[in-house]
Amino acid sequence: MQLKNGFVLESVGGAYLAVAVGEEAVMANALIRMNATGAFIWRLLSEGDYTEEQLVEAMLGEYDVPRELAERDIRAFIAKITEAGLLR
């Protein structure tokens, strides 16, 4: 899976905000708020094509968290961005 083009990710005060720009901004006025781990996954998915398993591995490589927690967080994150129609 991979994110659609046309989003800008900015950080402010410990939060990360993704905003639709260009064509995407005309279609929907989206503002997506996430934490640091969300932003980590967001960056991966905006740069390349990843499976859920690959995302879990990448997260375990970056953060010191139990595998079950990483899997649960990533599944929840994917569900959210799928529901919002942000995947290609």
Partner: peptide, 17 residues
Amino acid sequence: STTLAEELALHGTCAGT
């Protein structure tokens, strides 16, 4: 955006085009 005031009140930050 129409929800700027709410975003700012709730989180203290917001972003938009």
